[in-house]
Amino acid sequence: MKLFRLGVLLNMAQLEGNAIAKEEEQFIDYKRIASSEEFKKLLSQKKRFIVSYTIFYLAYSLLLPLLAFYTDILNHPVIGDITWAWIYGVSMTAMSLWVCRMYIKKAAQFDETAKEILEKEGL
């Protein structure tokens, strides 16, 4: 054991001690879980959801300065003297809260799938 410890120290002087200790305690075949069909499916669903929404809310946010400074289309009044620019600005809050809500809903589904995968692995 002592020799083994020494070997570890020599070979992986850079590695952190407690991380190794953890690996020793419990061996879980992460490679197998990661390459299982269910897990791959969960990841691709998650990816599709996260990427599409992230593109949407980033585009929505960065479009405002571009429209506001390089075009005049936002400067038309809608209600009284409130222009489209103000409506767009305030809609940022509504958009964010809506996207947040969509995430919470979707994440609950992902949780279920993740739970099933873990249960199947007996974790």
Binding site: I28, Y30, K31, I33, A34, S35, F39, L42, L43, K46, F110, A114, K115, I117, L118, L123
Partner: peptide
């Protein structure tokens, strides 16, 4: 793969 599993399932 360990990171993927842990990050996505929280096990």
């Amino acid at each position: 793969s360990e990171i993927l599993v842990k990050a996505n399932t929280g096990n």
